[in-house]
């Protein structure tokens, strides 16, 4: 029982982290119908940048994050403007395959520079427990991850609701032609949306890099987690990612509890496949659609 409660709590906290991993993918899918296969790799690329700036160059962690965000936004904007925007109107496949190519390039450039060694970003919260009793312990790191993630997601949904940038993104995802009739250059809007997604990925990259070891090839694994989050929460629904992350996090840790650590990720995948089968548009789809 103790273990069960502990697993659920850890799962909920992990769920917050999963949500921020998925939120960028959801945003990009919602606005331009693009399944960004490079989503996980972009996050891991951010992890590596933060690692280089903070661990190797000794810059303050938050400054390192800020520099990384600037660099990554430039990369993301260029990727969207010069590659994805050129094929985005030709249906889902070409754009998906372009991001597939970007994914391969990022993974292999990282491998070339950093080899296949495991890395971690050492943060201020490693190895500290907030709550530590006989039957349950909560690590400061997991708690911090969850709080930051929820904070970022709430901020993002406020931006989407209250600002002209957010409204124009929502307008473009609702009706491209009508948005253009308002004077919105939808292609530019796509670039902005990608930049916002990249910023969330940078934050996610910091959190993931502090919590787990990562490799140049880790992006694939996180892409699938992001996809799971989005599938469960509903493509394009920002708040839905919180629910998706929660379900995925709890089911992974319960899976680990009942079947052993080796099966933790497997259980997550199976939950995803089952949900994909029975609710192919996401758990919240009915509500989200109106």
């Amino acid at each position: 029982m103790d273990l069960f409660v502990s697993a659920v709590i850890q799962g909920v906290l992990l769920g917050g982290l999963f949500a921020i991993i998925g939120v960028g993918l959801s945003l990009v899918f919602g606005i331009m119908g693009l399944t960004n296969i490079a989503h996980g790799d972009i996050m891991i690329l951010a992890s590596f940048f933060i690692m280089v700036f903070s661990v190797q160059m000794g810059i303050n962690l938050f400054v390192a994050l800020a520099i990384t965000i600037v660099v990554m936004v430039v990369i993301g904007a260029a990727m969207q403007k010069f590659l994805i925007n050129r094929v985005i109107t030709k249906g889902a496949e070409p754009a998906l395959l372009v991001t597939f190519g970007i994914s391969i390039i990022i993974q292999n450039i990282l491998t070339l520079i950093f080899n296949a060694d495991s890395r971690i970003i050492k943060g201020p919260f490693s190895d500290v427990n907030v709550v530590s009793t006989n039957w349950v312990s909560i690590s400061a790191e997991y708690l911090m991850n969850c709080l930051v993630a929820v904070g970022v997601i709430i901020a993002l949904s406020l931006v989407m609701k209250k600002t002209y940038l957010g409204r124009s993104i929502r307008a473009a995802s609702s009706n491209v032609t009508a948005a253009e009739f308002m004077g919105v250059n939808t292609l530019k809007t796509y670039v902005y949306a990608m930049c916002i997604a990249v910023v969330t990925s940078c934050v996610a990259g910091l959190l993931v890099g502090q919590t787990f070891v990562f490799y140049p090839y880790s992006g694939t694994q996180y892409l699938i987690i992001a996809f799971g989050v989005v599938v469960i929460g509903g493509m394009g629904s920002i708040v839905g990612t919180l629910l998706g992350g929660l379900i995925l996090g709890v089911s992974q840790l319960l899976g680990a509890l009942f079947f052993g650590n080796g099966y933790m990720i497997l259980i997550g995948y199976i939950v995803m496949l089952v949900l994909l089968t029975f609710r192919p548009r996401g758990l919240l789809s009915n509500m989200a659609r109106k």
């Binding site: 307008a171 948005a179 308002m182 109106k290």
Partner: peptide
């Protein structure tokens, strides 16, 4: 824009 309120729709009109 169906999933936006009337006010938000009107504000989108004043996007420029």
């Amino acid at each position: 824009f169906e999933d936006m309120s009337i006010e938000e729709n009107l504000l989108m009109g004043a996007y420029l």
